[in-house]
Design a protein around this nucleic acid. Structure first.
Length: 603
DNA sequence: TCCACTTTCACGTTTGAAGCGA
DNA sequence: ATCGCTTCAAACGTGAAAGTGG
């Protein structure tokens, strides 16, 4: 299987070249767009296209207006939601725990609010059971992940990144027009981070307009050299947005490195190599400009259904639309039965907040509802504060991931062991304009490969990439019997240690504020018990609406002489077996260390 | 060997950035 | 400097074929 994948990857790569004879010609010296029609201004700007959209171009203005409209729309549709759903959460808006009422330049990371753009669209997909295509070459997400951020300190630099973690430890199959658990998940792919190309940038920059991660690509190529986020097909994932303060005085290696995590559960999806759910296909076609060519007649819809060989009534596009509008339709009910809606279950990944994974049996019946809809707050929020003066034990991070070998790190790439817990940061920088995605991944967590003590971590000054909350549910990958070579590459040889800061899975600490749905983390989190290093438990972090953690890990990213925030350029190479040594696979998650008033000084 | 399921790949269409000239 | 046209890479889903595993 693995061999086949490798061969396929190569074949595809070759095919791609065949199909794009001019791909290599130096026609453009800037990264080829690839932007979606509704591309993100910030990301586009990052591409530095001479003729790119201007800040105030119609597209930009529309984008901005759209963002505002979205917010309004959401706000207007908050009625009828469950009590558990804070109004604001329904807006797709989250707020960092408020520790102080400070504002302006003294704003804390806890005050940062994030609004998911096109949340209504996301919800439509979510209701149908979002599927994301993954290919060897990498496929963008649609809807694309875009957010509007407010509450940042205009002058403070932040790094925005996304990671995608397994929502649970199940493998799924689409059967009888619905997703069912098909077994245990395959070993998680090397966790990678997609760092926004603009990172680091001042808060004013981020708040100026929509922040788009549309160039993020998903792949099923375990050996992907492009830094795309690697996923397993037929598995469920949850994207998470991390905002990290990037001031030099607040570098990962320094005291009080703070970051917060925002999770919008409606962005969860099941990765597939071809669409399974006809409804999702239609939604994609209807909403993705690049798929306009498939927007056709009813016949087209019929064809789609027939081709997909699904055993359900053929439903035309218009019918689908109608169903979306009317939930009383019989067919609609049928459709929904197969998609993650209306199920009492909020289990799956979301249940991990308690550290208790869903049992297969449980999920078996409720898989179709694995995308909680009404009971979960629309967003899960985490806010962490890192301190290097604390111990791992204090954090509950039993085992930091270490890179004990001289692994070459690839620029922009960072990979985390199993990425169950977010591999967070290292050098969130993307200096290479040609590279669309800034991916970071932590070293492969070879739980059995070796071990490094926490002390080792702290004693290793040359940490190049620090990962936070990286739990490795599955310890290894293998290719034809050969231990999987993690995408290690992402570490410099000079950075033997890759500390992982446990991303604490915390409990929901507070109710959203009325009408704003703002999560207030002022209420303190209770520490969660140590979460075992299992796929299921690892996903617990995203289950916590709000939490603030103090990470005792020295650094989230390296501070380098001369350029504290700039990592060295590393080009990846697969690490040699055992390059990464993790002594213990069990990681503790710190939950609510009672770090109140965790401020970070703005420089 | 068969079968079901998954993945791959070539294809046509659409979009938008890049390049160039007016 | 701006505008408009052309070119072409990237993105999309489709549909058939190939691959994989039980």
């Amino acid at each position: 299987m693995s061999v086949r994948r490798v061969r396929s990857a190569q074949a595809q790569s070759a095919a791609r070249h065949r199909r794009s004879p001019n791909a290599g010609k130096a026609k453009k010296n800037t990264p080829k767009h690839g932007d979606l029609p509704n591309g993100d201004p910030i990301e586009k700007r990052a591409s530095s296209h001479p003729r790119g959209k201007k800040e105030n171009s119609p597209e930009m203005l529309q984008e901005k207006a759209s963002a505002g409209a979205d917010e309004h729309m959401s706000r207007a549709q908050t009625d009828g939601e469950t009590d558990l759903l804070p109004d604001q959460s329904q807006l797709g808006l989250s707020q960092s725990p408020t520790v102080s009422g400070s504002s302006g330049p003294e704003q804390n990371i806890e005050n940062i609010k994030v609004v998911l753009h096109e949340r209504e669209l996301w919800k439509r997909f979510h209701e149908a059971g979002t599927e994301m295509i993954i290919t060897k070459a990498g496929r963008r997400m649609f809807p694309s992940y875009k957010v509007k951020v407010t509450g940042m300190n205009p002058k403070t630099k932040y790094i925005l990144l996304i990671d995608i973690v397994p929502a649970d430890d199940h493998r799924y199959k689409f059967c009888d027009n619905k997703w069912m658990v098909a077994g245990k998940a395959e070993p998680a792919m090397p966790g990678r981070l997609y760092v926004h190309p603009d990172s680091p940038a001042a808060g004013a920059h981020w708040m100026r307009q929509l922040i788009s991660f549309q160039k993020l690509k998903l792949t099923n190529n375990h050996l992907d050299p492009f830094g795309h986020i690697i996923l397993n097909s037929m598995h469920k994932y949850q994207p998470r947005l991390h905002i990290v303060k990037a001031d030099e005085n607040n570098a990962f290696g320094s005291k009080n490195t703070a970051y917060c995590t925002h999770v919008f559960h409606e962005t969860a999806f099941i990765s597939v190599t071809s669409y399974q759910n006809h409804k999702i296909t239609q939604l994609k076609i209807e909403n993705n400009p690049f798929a306009k060519g498939f927007r056709g007649s009813e016949e087209g819809d019929l064809r789609v259904s027939r081709l997909q060989g699904k055993e359900y009534p053929v439903i035309s596009k218009s019918m689908v639309r109608q169903r979306i509008i009317s939930s009383h339709s019989h067919l609609a009910g049928k459709l929904r039965a197969g998609v993650f809606t209306g199920h009492p279950q909020v289990l799956s990944s979301y249940q991990y907040e308690t550290g208790v994974p869903l049992s297969n049996s449980e999920s078996q019946d409720s898989v179709s509802n694995s995308f909680p809809q009404s009971r979960d707050p629309s967003l899960m929020y985490h806010c962490f504060k890192h301190r290097d003066n604390t111990r791992h034990l204090e954090l509950g991070c039993k085992r930091p991931y270490l890179d004990s070998s001289s692994v070459v790190s690839e620029e922009h790439y960072f990979h985390s062991p199993a990425s169950y817990e977010s591999p967070l940061l290292s050098h969130p920088y993307c200096t290479e304009a040609s590279r669309e995605a800034c991916m970071y991944s932590s070293i492969e967590a070879e739980s059995g490969a070796g071990a490094v003590d926490a002390d080792d971590l702290t004693n290793s000054p040359s940490v190049n990439c620090n990962m936070w909350a990286t739990v490795q549910p599955f310890t290894r990958y293998s290719v034809d019997g050969v231990p999987y070579q993690p995408f290690a590459a992402h570490f410099t040889s000079s950075a033997p240690v890759t500390p992982m800061v446990s991303h604490a899975a915390s409990s929901i600490v507070s109710r959203p504020q009325a009408d704003l749905g703002v999560y207030n983390s002022a209420t303190v989190q209770r520490g969660l018990p140590v979460i075992p290093m299992s796929p299921s438990s690892s996903s617990g972090s995203s289950a916590v609406p709000i939490s603030r953690h103090r990470l005792d890990h020295p650094s989230l990213y390296n501070k380098r002489p001369g350029s504290p925030l700039r990592p060295e350029r590393h080009f990846s190479a697969y690490s040699t077996p055992g390059a990464i040594s993790i002594r213990d696979t069990s990681y503790q998650y710190q939950v609510g260390l009672g770090s109140t008033g965790s401020h970070w000084t703005d420089s």
